[in-house]
Amino acid sequence: MFFEQITGNLIQGLVLGSVYGMATMGLSLIFGVLKIVNVGHGAFIMVGAFITLWLFNTLGLSPILAIPAAFAVGMLLGLLFYYTTMRRLIKAPELASLLATFSIGILLEEVIKLIFGSEFRGYNWAVGKLNLGVTVLPMSKLYACIGSAIIALLLYIWFNKTRAGTAMRSVVEDSEGARVCGVNVDGTYAMSFAIGIGLTVVSGVLLTMFIPVGINPYMGGGYTLKAFVIAVLGGLASPYGAFFGGLVFGLIENGSYMLFALIPGVEPFALTRFLSFVILLIILLIRPTGLLSTK
């Protein structure tokens, strides 16, 4: 019985973690290439959630079809914000880019609030459940997990096998060196920012497949914090580190919720969120370059 509960929890944790990991890859990609922390990260996740919601509720489209739509919207937003704002801030003090991405996040929240209002929304995508014996997994969660894994794999292939991906890696290593070797650094910055945002908006789709309720313009803040915890777990500048950091974080979150629920007189949900903050501080204190990074 106890063993079943543990196994069930591990599975739930890993499924959740894969989505968390995917939701952090964009943040790490942008930090790795541009050395900019996207403080508005959660707002882009929120945009993805609203794209899913809108396509599902008004056009009746499956959330799976929302993935390419979200990626396209994300790329466009990324290019827009890169060329209007971020491009001028790459050489500026960190203060500038932090505050700019923060403001972009607020802007997105307010625009979405203007269009959709600020009440909590949700959708109901009935695709059945999968009984694994030790636990019951809704198919939508399973799709989200598979989707995350496929996207992570595609990014890996793209990074390692294509010219643009190689250029991006060279900029991560040494932007001046890459420039000297004829890499279009500005173009690579723009591309990385756009893809990073694209991935983040897509992760919003996957997260709503996981939790199809509680969609609201201000839902992103919690995800920003989680993404930071995951990103520092995996080494801030590595998208794959982020993916594995997500798996670890999913396990921690699921497990700690289960444990906190055993303590009488506390609110396990709130404590779980507090725990993620504590983990963040501990990692930053002992190893700011990331627990899973090799450097």
Binding site: V37, L225, F228, A231, V232, L271, R273, F277
Partner: peptide, 23 residues
């Protein structure tokens, strides 16, 4: 720089959930 900002972004939320969670 960036790491400082990341460390502080959760302070208010962390404290809120601590007060709520531990009652």
């Amino acid at each position: 720089g960036a790491y400082f900002a990341i460390a502080t972004i959760g302070v208010n939320e962390g404290l809120r959930f601590f007060i709520e969670g531990a009652r």
